[in-house]
Nucleic acid binder design. Structure first.
Lengths: 212, 212, 212, 212
DNA sequence: TATGAATGAGAATTCATTCAT
DNA sequence: GATGAATGAATTCTCATTCAT
């Protein structure tokens, strides 16, 4: 984990991890409410259950908190995505199930995703690139599934674009919830988006139906 | 235009419009560089070519600048989208041309779109809702084109989802440029996304090819 | 009148007087509401019925407005006090009637008096001294009445102190209205204060009763 | 003490009290010179011996400083008045001594009294009412002494008015010092005012003389 | 004379960060 | 390791005053 990019004064590794988790939890709660810029370090410290002095024993700057938050969110997303992908053999229905898992995951983590979207630009170059790299890895995971599941249906570039499309359609669910969640239930949304994807690839509906 | 939601001390309407345009231009330049929060009102005034005092003759609060910027961007997008849509009879190739225009538009306005995405949440409730309403209208325009061009191919809900997909795919081009613009030229991106869309609707490729 | 201490750009004397009267009227209205410091020159101009530019054709600084206001209030008080004093022969009942007139006057001008009390210290040295001199003149008028009406009852110093007492008892009526005006009607207040004054001078009550 | 109406960020109660006392001292010095509105928070901080940041750890707004100052002055006045009143049996000479103490007190605190008079109106409703209530209590203390010392000489209403008169005659000494302190020494002022009061109540001079 | 747009010094307040205890 | 008081640069916003038209 590249959490170590963020320097702590405290040496005890376990303690650092424990405190940072408190911090991330507290910060996410606050960032959801008021965003990064409108949240003060004092508030983060308080919400995390320790003093402002202690907060600064575990980070160097306020931006570090944002980085830890982004990193943590990515970690969670990745972990869950990996666990959804680890087992099965490549097949259309496996692809469908991965898409479904990903969309459900995005539903669970709506607010975290919104935070990342809106605040990541406040990271400074290095951290931002690190976060983007992580994101790219996730898109690559989707791309990989597409390629392995339906190799004869897509070119590399198709898969790439498709992976990006799926990726942001998942984010869109949370990001544009005020528009989408009025019109669709999550299952409906998943079903329809999946149908579009499969049809775009000229994959028979039957496969889709089976998967459900 | 609901620019009048923002109160000015200065009475001369023409002057207000002129100065606000200077202001919007200056602010966009700065917001592109450093975002809304990191830009100071003094910088905005300077970049706009007048003093801080003058700035505040034309707005009430810093947030007003953001609102004016968002409103202006929406206005531009809408105007160009309308001019791309006004003329022709509904047809598949017309649909294709609208999609193309929209994507090109999003390419032109990449940075403005990014600003809106990342900063609109800093608007307070009223303004935010106003901006969202404008956005919804634009999605509706796309939806309307879809429905009128290929009525027999889509249900209302299909059209709705599709319009949202197209909408964010356009934004994605700017938003995820670091990923996409390495892999695709704009034309390639348009062509491939269009292909996916048409195939998803089981519309013959020929139509697509014709349009190009 | 020493209004000429305040310089105007405009030369036409009549116009200057007219505009200044508008100005004083407007300013008093506003000062009553929010005090001198919380009132802006723009508000004064607006309330007076002309533009900020015009305002500054008739004064040099904001403080000038305050001076004009204080001067005007004093002028009014003095004028009314003089008219209450001009006619009669000295006598106890004349003294009583002057006291009564003065208290009634203070009742009429409560708010103006409060303004003067609270804001005069914002005048700069010169103006403040001028205003204080005017005030002293008014106390002198009361003192003069006392001395001429009851020469055998008071020494010079007694009269002086008494005049001051009466002067501030009149102001107190407006100044401490939240306390006094709950407990006393104006007439009652006048009657009781008069009684105290006369008794302090060992003047028979009969005189007081006659006067009423 | 209702100093707690003013919120501090700092938790240590003793420190809060210490710093606020520094602050009140500094503020009074400055308010005497230039009044509340012309004094900046930075000046207050500097005069108090700490930084502007520290100042704001102990208050929320500039107005809080004014409230603290008024509250403190009232506290001092009350304390001294109470200590002047606590001991003796009711009697005319006791009344005389209380009046004397009060006038001496007003002499000592002239400038503070002037501050309160001129600036209290800048407090917002809640605080202003709180301050007025305190003032009323002080008048009540005087009234109580009057009633207990010379019950057969005054009605309730007489006592009430008298207490108000004494109260403002004390304030007048500082408030109109430019007029009074040229003509009278403090002792002379006290003696003469006392004489007027007693005569107004038809109390023999002998009592007055005894008391001196 | 009248107007009102422009100016910028100045004010209150915030908040990330440090450091002595 | 933990605390929280202290700091002051930075920020938003105001408003008296000027001056070209």
């Amino acid at each position: 984990m590249k959490q170590d990019q963020v320097l702590a004064t405290v040496k005890n590794k376990q303690l650092v991890e424990k405190r940072r988790n408190q911090m991330i939890k507290g910060a996410i709660t606050l960032f959801k409410e008021k965003g990064f810029h409108r949240t003060t370090t004092r508030e983060i410290a308080k919400e995390s259950g320790f003093s402002i002095g202690t907060l600064y024993e575990y980070i160097r700057t306020k931006e570090d908190v944002l980085f830890l938050v982004c990193d943590s969110i990515h970690g969670q997303v990745r972990e869950r995505l990996e666990s959804a992908m680890s087992i099965e053999n490549p097949s259309v229905s496996y692809l469908i199930s991965v898409i479904k898992s990903y969309f459900k995951l995005m539903d669970d983590m709506q607010e975290e995703i919104v935070i990342m979207y809106q605040e990541a630009k406040s990271l400074k170059k290095d951290s931002r690139e690190y976060v983007l790299k992580k994101e790219r890895e996730m898109v690559n995971m989707l791309e990989h599934v597409i390629i392995t599941c339906i190799p004869e249906k897509v070119t590399k570039k198709d898969a790439e674009l498709l992976a990006n499309n799926i990726f942001i359609q998942g984010q869109m669910w949370g990001f544009r919830r005020w528009a989408l969640q009025k019109q669709f239930t999550l299952d409906e949304y998943i079903e329809r988006q999946t149908k579009f994807i499969l049809q775009a690839l000229a994959i028979e509906d039957s496969a889709s139906n089976e998967a459900y």
